[in-house]
């Protein structure tokens, strides 16, 4: 099976190792993951800021890059997947052609854990690992894509890992895209509270499906000097491949 990999701008720029982990994971399951050239950003930062024109520019580009063939698209971000699936059609509501294309492309995009569970049956693989892991459920992943169980199924399936649910795992960490920049005081206070929840689990690793949140949480960890590893679920799983 062949898929198109949408790395996202955050992974491409800041966290290339997550992209590599994703390629390794997908290969393990016999998936031919290709990274279309010219891919940029889904446009989410502009969209959540209310900048329709710029979101449309990014979306049009995304649709031309990923609409070139009919392969499924896999991305390591609930927020970017939801942007394409749920917000693109709204952006092009007055342009029937692009709206149709947006709906077509949107129907083929998967967040990574969604793809791993539903297509690869990766939760039946027997990943290996160690230590205590807790998980932060990111907002668009759970509330817009409705992906609640998949990441937890994968983490629980890991042999040698103790999965500890986080209290208030579904409470926003305070990232919120441009919110982080526009309301740094609240954003940091929210991230600090998220870190309190993480520390309460006694976990040595916190993971999640969105680098935006993980970046914000990692900053709280750094500011406090806490001893917790913050890492994307793609990396956790890739390290544990049998």
């Amino acid at each position: 099976m062949r898929v198109q990999l949408f790395a996202t701008c955050l992974v491409d720029t800041f966290y290339p190792q997550t992209g590599e982990a994703m390629v390794k994971l997908l290969r393990h399951f016999g998936v031919d993951a290709r990274t279309p050239r010219g891919q940029t950003c889904c446009g989410k930062p502009a969209d959540s800021g209310g900048y329709v024109r710029e979101s449309r520019e990014a979306a049009r580009h995304f649709l031309s890059v990923f609409g070139a063939n009919g392969d499924p698209i896999v991305t390591p971000s609930g927020s970017c997947a939801s942007m394409v699936k749920n917000h693109y059609p709204h952006l092009f509501k007055n342009d029937p052609g692009l709206r149709q294309k947006a709906e077509d492309v949107g129907s083929r995009i998967f967040e990574l854990t969604q793809f791993l569970v539903h297509v690869c049956k990766a939760h039946e693989t027997g990943f290996k690992g160690k230590g205590r892991i807790t998980y932060h459920a990111s907002c668009q992943l759970i509330r817009e894509l409705l992906v609640r169980e998949e990441p937890v199924m994968l983490l629980r399936s890991m042999q040698g890992v103790e999965f500890v649910p986080m209290p208030d795992a579904e409470r926003c960490c305070g990232f919120g895209g441009i919110f982080m920049g526009k309301q740094p005081e609240i954003s940091m206070a929210m991230a600090d509270e998220k870190l309190d929840s993480i520390l309460r689990t006694g976990a040595d690793t916190v993971t999640g499906c969105d680098h935006g949140c993980l970046m914000n949480i990692a900053d709280a960890v750094k500011r406090r000097g806490a001893d917790v590893r913050v890492t994307h679920i793609a990396a956790v799983l890739a390290e544990g491949l049998p």
């Binding site: 491409d12 950003c41 930062p45 890059v65």
Partner: peptide, 15 residues
């Protein structure tokens, strides 16, 4: 955001 929009719609420049 305007700069972002231009860059995001031009793969080469954004990369």
């Amino acid at each position: 955001i305007a700069a972002f929009g231009r860059a995001a719609s031009l793969g080469g420049l954004f990369t």
